[in-house]
Amino acid sequence: MKQNRQAATLVGKTALVTGAGGGVGRGIALALAEVGARVVIAARRGATGEETAELIRAEGGEALALEVDVTSLEEVRRAVTAAQVRFGGLDILVHNATHGASGHPKQLQDFDDADWDAQVAVDLAGAHHCAVAAFAALRASECGRMILLCSTFGLHGAALNPAYAAIKGGIRGLTKALAREWGPSGITVNAISPSALTAASEAFFATQPQLYDSYIANFPLGRMGHERNDIGRAVASLCGPGMGYVTGQIIQVDGGLYTAG
């Protein structure tokens, strides 16, 4: 497997990544495997999760793909158990799964309870389920790590996306609360707020090309991030031994976008 200069940092460690059937989740899974982690792919659709697992195996890594609905605590628990049975434990949990409607602008008055609850169930309740299911395993690890996916929307708000902004604000609070609660157990809890050029964002800009240049102008680095090379490797670094004293932080992995805002 082609590996970067951090190649040995996560050898012998096991990571579980939710929402890893594509996009940023796939990028994170690939980056973790690149530095030696064995990766459990938890995806809502088994076929997409297996695609990610095959990409990891093709590079010489170890991966297990599972069909997991993070809105179910029992399904998340089964995924954690599967990681322990297959690889002997769990050291890292990355909750990336998000509801498909989260990226679609929608005014508050157009939300009904079902819309709101569906997004909360995946993003925020899913984070709760991951934390409950993984705590004992992460505590048993010598270097337990939990990484949550936040957003600048959770910091400065989001016009036309109130549910997503509220949820990511909740993720921010949960990250800080768990860092305090789990610190004595030797577990670090952090979140990243990424900006990546995903397939979904590419599709959006393809329909709204006039918006692309004005949006990119907000990035001091002049580009959106790569799912694996920028976002995934940042997560892998945060999970490494050199970051064991960092906890309770919301880290912007966004090319300076939030600074520019």
Rank of each mutant, 00 (worst) to 15 (best):
M1G: 15
K2D: 00
R5N: 08
A20V: 11
A20P: 12
G21V: 13
G22I: 02
V24L: 14
V24K: 02
G25C: 08
R26H: 03
A29N: 06
L30I: 10
L30E: 10
E34G: 04
G36N: 06
G36D: 06
V39C: 05
V39A: 01
A43D: 14
A43G: 05
R44H: 15
T48I: 13
T48E: 14
T48A: 12
L55W: 07
L55M: 15
R57L: 02
A63Q: 12
L64Q: 09
A65K: 12
L66H: 05
E67F: 02
V70P: 06
T71K: 12
S72P: 12
S72Y: 05
L73I: 12
E74Q: 14
R77W: 01
R77F: 00
R78C: 01
R78Q: 15
V80I: 15
T81F: 01
R86C: 03
G88E: 06
L90W: 07
D91H: 11
D91M: 11
N96W: 04
N96R: 06
G100W: 07
A101S: 14
D112I: 10
D117C: 08
V120F: 12
V120K: 02
A121P: 11
L124N: 05
L124S: 03
A125M: 10
H128Y: 14
H129F: 05
A131W: 08
A134N: 02
S141I: 10
E142F: 01
C143E: 13
C143Y: 07
C143A: 15
M146P: 07
M146Q: 12
I147D: 01
L148W: 07
S151I: 13
G154M: 10
A158N: 13
L160C: 01
A166F: 04
I171R: 08
I171T: 11
R172H: 14
S185V: 00
I187P: 05
T188D: 01
N190R: 12
I192R: 07
I192E: 01
S193L: 15
A196T: 13
A196E: 08
T207R: 14
P209Q: 02
Q210N: 08
Y212C: 00
Y212V: 04
D213S: 12
I216M: 03
A217E: 14
G222C: 04
M224N: 00
G225C: 04
H226Y: 01
H226W: 01
A234D: 08
A234G: 05
A236G: 10
L238H: 07
L238F: 05
G240A: 13
P241K: 02
Y245T: 07
V246I: 15
T247S: 15
G248M: 10
I251N: 00
G255C: 06
G256R: 08
A260N: 15
G261E: 02
